[in-house]
Design a binder for these strands. Structure first.
Length: 138
DNA sequence: GCCAACGTTGGC
DNA sequence: GCCAACGTTGGC
């Protein structure tokens, strides 16, 4: 079981859009970055991830689950690009802002902090539980 | 809206 | 295979 973080601009694809897809979920398409793609190729059904809003909000707003493993991205004919399908699991009680994450020494190694531009990133089990704690989830 | 960081492209 | 040029992302 692995943990991940999916980054999206709310104006392009927001948490609300994701929730609207319900149980059926949706492809996490449009990724054109090798590192992000490689991360998606490592995902297994049942893996969990944070849904992060970049740009205006800059906060973890929800939890998602991987429901389909890596397959070709339907938005391109280019065989290089794969993606997974994810569904919204639940909204977190309190959004965890980038500011909070940056302010927590235990999270100083998160890719969100160290590799800002990576849109699909791995999250360690420790980081996962710390962010959940900040979200008021446990 | 600006700019730094970084990934990708293409010429050599 | 290197590296300069360029494009994109995302925080501020």
């Amino acid at each position: 079981m692995q943990y991940w973080l999916f980054k999206s601009e709310p104006s392009t694809w927001s948490w609300e859009d994701q929730v609207a897809k319900g149980e059926a979920g949706e492809e996490w398409d449009g990724v054109r970055n090798y590192q992000a793609r490689n991360n998606m190729r490592l995902m297994k059904t049942g893996d969990l991830g944070f849904f992060y809003h970049s740009q205006s909000e800059k906060a973890v707003v929800g939890i998602v689950e991987v429901i389909a493993e890596s397959h070709p991205d339907s938005t391109t004919d280019d065989a290089r690009w794969d993606c997974v399908d994810i569904r919204a699991v639940k909204e977190v009680p309190q959004a965890v802002t980038l500011e909070q994450i940056k302010g927590d020494l235990r999270l100083s190694e998160m890719a969100l902090v160290k590799n800002t531009r990576l849109s699909v990133q791995p999250v360690t089990a420790d980081e996962w539980s710390i962010v959940l704690e900040l979200a008021g989830e446990k």
